[in-house]
């Protein structure tokens, strides 16, 4: 029978090896939470989420919006006295929840990340306005970006006519991506 890994072990395993010390070294000092610019929008503070992982509270962690609210600013990581790269742990949690297909309802982050990757695989370049307009209509992201475009004078007559450039060797790039992750047909 295969040994089933504990949740905390799984998370540890999906954090890339160069990313600081393992989360079990956490002192629960709260420096991360105190440094976090997004903490008031999180269900659990960074310190709490680490505590939940260490205690193998998988369900609670998967139900939390914390890592999807992380702005990847690395303030916590540079200050942690135990040398834990909390910001990269947040990425690891995002990946874990995407793989499991389990995340809090109503979050835009998972869909956004997936759309972003799709866009790169289809063109090699990203283009924020197009991304928002095509992939995220239901989140009214189009309006957000429209405002941005107007303010920078990039939109003429209220339309969104701009397209992203494509890389020239797109086929090669797609083959390259397929060597990393199995993806379906691309446009």
């Amino acid at each position: 029978m295969a040994v089933e890994l504990s949740f905390s072990k799984e998370i540890e395993n999906i954090m890339y090896a160069s990313h600081g010390k393992p989360i079990k070294d956490c002192l629960q000092c709260g420096t991360c939470s105190g440094s976090c610019p997004a903490v008031e929008f999180m269900d659990n503070s960074p310190r709490e989420i680490i505590g939940l992982i260490s205690a193998d509270f998988k369900k609670e962690v998967l139900a939390s919006n914390t890592y999807w609210t992380c702005a990847s600013c690395y303030h916590c990581s540079v200050r942690c006295p135990a040398g834990i790269d909390i910001a990269d742990m947040m990425y690891a949690l995002k990946r874990y929840s995407m793989w499991k297909g389990e995340f809090q309802e109503g979050l835009i982050g998972p869909e956004f990340s997936e759309s972003f990757v799709k866009m790169i695989v289809n063109s090699g370049r990203s283009f924020e306005p197009l991304l928002a307009a095509t992939y995220l209509p239901k989140f009214s992201a189009r309006d957000i970006v429209q405002e941005g475009l107007m303010a920078t004078g990039l939109v003429l007559s209220g339309k969104m006519p701009l397209l992203p450039k494509k890389v020239k060797r797109l086929k090669n790039l797609q083959r390259m991506v397929r060597r990393i992750i199995p993806i379906g047909e691309t446009k």
Binding site: Y91, R95, F116, V117, G124, S126, V177, I180, I181
Partner: peptide
Amino acid sequence: EDWNCCGATAYFPVDELLAYTLVSR
């Protein structure tokens, strides 16, 4: 010549190796 998107902060939530590979190109 022919550079590609590096993914900013949006690849790492999906696949870390893919993120590094796209930057490596």
